[in-house]
């Protein structure tokens, strides 16, 4: 059975086990929707008071926000196993169990768990996108749709890579992983807004170090048909999500290194 079909089996098994507690799954989904929706509440309140922000109107900001939300929700859905890797696999020794099976550890971690509740964030972001489409009278041409899918794909790759890197750190320490987790969420938070709002050091960070801007800010500008007020060339904007895949490739190299470190020290 090939890897994709096996993931399908894992997926079905994960759904079945969560559906043993349907009320809990529903509550967690609603909870996730509510706790992610509050950020848009604060953005709305600020626009309500200040009108506009450095040339951005609310609908546009909601576009950036929604794309980060959709990408992050998918990544969180696919890489839950990496997210809990330190606490549920390294600390407990359960990682040995994965290594004792004739499949790659990364594949098994992807298959470990698919949390239904992540759809809470996805729905929330989708609603924001729908409302923003209305506000801007935006027309979804086939070209815009294709670009949107490409943007989300790059975003899923990038956010997945962040969870993989977090898991790689767990090979060295299982303490303070919450901090790394918080940095991931902090990145998401920063990436939701147009980066032209930020100071230079944070922009540099979001473009060149953890290229969140490449999977949200730049391609969404292309979708909206706007030029970058910071002066990035127009031809670059739609290509930017590629950075997400490059980042994922690098993080998987780091993962391999971590696994080989684990099998040579056993801890």
């Amino acid at each position: 059975m090939n890897a994709l079909a096996l993931l399908g089996r894992y997926f079905a098994a994960s759904m079945r086990s969560q559906m043993q507690y349907p009320a809990s799954a529903l509550m967690l989904t609603v909870g996730q929707l509510a706790s992610t929706a509050i950020e848009i509440v604060s953005i709305w309140a600020l626009f309500d008071r200040f009108g506009a922000i450095k040339g951005w109107e609310l609908g546009e900001v909601m576009f950036f926000y929604a794309f980060v939300g959709v990408s992050f929700a998918f990544a969180d859905f696919l890489t839950r196993g990496f997210d809990v890797f330190g606490s549920d696999f390294v600390r407990t020794g359960a990682f040995d169990r994965l290594l004792l099976r004739p499949r790659s550890a990364a594949l098994q971690l992807v298959g470990h768990d698919f949390r239904i509740s992540r759809f809470g964030r996805f729905f929330q972001a989708a609603i924001v996108l729908a409302v923003a489409t209305q506000m801007l009278h935006f027309v979804w041409t086939p070209q815009a749709i294709a670009l949107a899918l490409w943007t989300v794909a790059g975003g899923v790759a990038l956010f997945s890579a962040l969870f993989v890197l977090q898991a790689v750190l767990a090979f060295w320490t299982v303490e303070s992983l919450e901090a790394v987790n918080a940095l991931t969420y902090g990145g998401v938070y920063a990436g939701q807004l147009p980066i032209s709002l930020y100071a230079r050091w944070l922009r540099t960070f979001l473009i060149f170090i953890v290229p969140l801007a490449c999977v949200a800010y730049f391609p969404v500008l292309a979708i909206l048909g706007r030029s970058d007020p910071l002066g990035a060339p127009d031809e670059f904007l739609p290509v930017a999500p590629l950075a997400g895949f490059i980042f994922l490739g690098l993080s998987l190299l780091a993962w391999r290194f971590g696994v080989s470190k684990y099998t040579s020290t056993g801890s």
Partner: peptide, 21 residues
């Protein structure tokens, strides 16, 4: 330690292992 899936019936865990192996 368990290698089966905590919330799944035994038979489902067996089937999953069939596919993994």
């Amino acid at each position: 330690r368990t290698q089966l899936w905590w919330d799944l019936p035994v038979i489902d865990g067996f089937d999953l292992l069939r596919d993994i192996y």
